[in-house]
Design a protein around this nucleic acid. Structure first.
Lengths: 149, 149
DNA sequence: AATGGAAGTGAAAACCATTACCAATAAGGA
DNA sequence: TCCTTATTGGTAATGGTTTTCACTTCCATT
């Protein structure tokens, strides 16, 4: 289920962290989904394969992964956080349209390169001016989807 | 304290809503602050001038104002929502740098026009493609501030 | 192989921002 | 002023997330 040592093993060793079964299982779940999983989603998925893994560990691991930069954490306003793998073979850089009516999230990858080019420039300027080291950015478009307007 | 009928009175009538003392007080507090106030911040401020106003009303009113488009709601990852007046004499369009270490928020207005120009174009494209009506956007740069890196 | 300390884990309880409920109140047109 | 109905405030509930703490696992060192 967890499979052989994937590409992220090195990162853990580098940070001085241990690679454990729960961590592998959580990363595996994240890498297999293209959705924006909540902590509970991940818990249910992981718990099915490894009933011993508890919800607390899921939260703790997600926090660790976010700190390491392996996972992005989002908040779309529905009262729970969402998590996505930051990089890897199955990921593609995208941003989000957030429907304020039903909470639906639409990913888009179109024009993201263009956005990123501009934002990288702006980021550099801001980074110097505010002495702030930027490691990622998020863009949300808010509005109403076809069903809600 | 609340003052004469400000510019937003018309909007309320237009939507068929009543203009009440709590609503005026909350809008007044928001219009006097340039910070990202939490519901509790607003409650404390409003409650000082009008001890009768309850926390529930603050939440309800903020939700209403967000729906009306008068107020923006943000989530910077510290477990509570933040609110800012969307438009008005004292507001200026800006985005945010979010420190993942201490949670500090830095507003920036530099280059926002440039950003907005690009995002407006992209928004139009996405709007058509996904049949999604966009009414605002948010940009967060995530990283570490000078004290945390 | 045994040991010891540190990192990691799970269950349950605590936390705390937000929401639901409901009786009482106030806004605004008739 | 009266009447209808939106609005309000206190309290209790909700539910995602964090804390606590005893226990387990890992791993470098004997």
């Amino acid at each position: 289920m967890v499979g052989g040592p994937p590409w992220w093993h090195g990162k853990f060793a580098g940070y001085g962290y241990r690679m454990t079964v729960p961590r592998q299982a959580i990363l595996s779940t994240l890498s297999k989904s293209k959705k924006h999983l909540s902590a509970e989603d991940i818990y249910l998925s992981v718990h099915k394969a490894y009933p011993g893994i508890g919800l607390t560990t899921v939260y703790r691991t997600l926090e660790l992964l976010v700190r390491m930069g392996l996972v992005f954490k989002f908040d779309f306003g529905d009262g729970r956080s969402r998590y996505e793998l930051a990089e890897g073979p199955n990921t593609n850089h995208h941003h989000h349209l957030v429907c304020r009516g039903c909470g639906r999230i639409i990913d888009y990858s179109e024009l993201v390169d263009e956005e990123t080019k501009i934002l990288k420039q702006i980021g550099q300027t801001l980074s110097k001016k505010y002495d702030f080291s930027i490691d990622s950015h998020q863009i949300h478009f808010l509005g109403l989807c076809n069903k809600c307007k």
